[in-house]
Design a protein around this nucleic acid. Sequence first.
DNA 1: ATAAATGCAAAGCATTTGCAGTAAA
DNA 2: TTTACTGCAAATGCTTTGCATTTAT
Lengths: 141, 141
Amino acid sequence: MNTKHFQKRDSSPQFKRTPQRLAILDYLKGNTSHPSADDIYRAVSKKYQSMSFATVYNTLNTLAKSGTLRELTIDPKRKRYDPDTSRHHHLICVLCGKIVDIPEGITVDLPGKLARDFTLLGNHVEFYGHCSLCTRKGKTS
Amino acid sequence: MNTKHFQKRDSSPQFKRTPQRLAILDYLKGNTSHPSADDIYRAVSKKYQSMSFATVYNTLNTLAKSGTLRELTIDPKRKRYDPDTSRHHHLICVLCGKIVDIPEGITVDLPGKLARDFTLLGNHVEFYGHCSLCTRKGKTS
DNA sequence: ATAAATGCAAAGCATTTGCAGTAAA
DNA sequence: TTTACTGCAAATGCTTTGCATTTAT
């Protein structure tokens, strides 16, 4: 994860390198588990006991707005966060909720008419299914 | 929308054709607006004033489980419901939240290794961007 | 010194649930 | 008559917000 968002720029708010933010960034760095805010709160609280939920959410929202972090909507129960902002897709096990990265570039295009009416910013492919662990365990819901 | 879920079958719960459910199904039939539970509640309440939120949610969950309805997670703020259960994708305007169907079949495959470890049930492509109306209005957030 | 972040608790929404009464089968 | 649904209100869970205090710059 880069740290561009901490650099001072004229006429834009300055992002302060607080220990809480650094702890969150550190936890997220290279993390491919697509944690929820609660996961992040629990993990970071261990090392930083005064951490509050408000700070976790404030930080995540700030990072998401600055493009340092991707908010995933693939889990219907809660937002998940992905420090990998490169183009990639996801696969979710509908039994256990585990999310896995699909690193390959999949080229998808909009049909012509829509493409003309719409300024396309990006796309995301969601794959749904059962992971091998859940299948082995015989889970059905 | 079909009505298979109302047919009586041994050893499976029977779905009763209550006026509330029929009103919801009627509202949803052919509806391409991808309404939220609240949208549905407000629309159906007009014609059926005693409708409650609990009934809307119970019905939507029942229909989703029976496969009569698709729950969309594309909107981070709330679930959206789609009576069109055929394979198709969606495009969301990140400014106004409008969701549009992408009727074309887009073929997307999982890389081999993952495909072996995962029982694939389906996939869904989300397109993000700005719709022409928002662009014309000069919206930026 | 100043602007911004923290942490707490309260508030805000979306969604679910328990339960007594009601209606479909 | 039996089983399931409705509607209410309360509860739950995730996320946001107001505000006084603290901290990075």
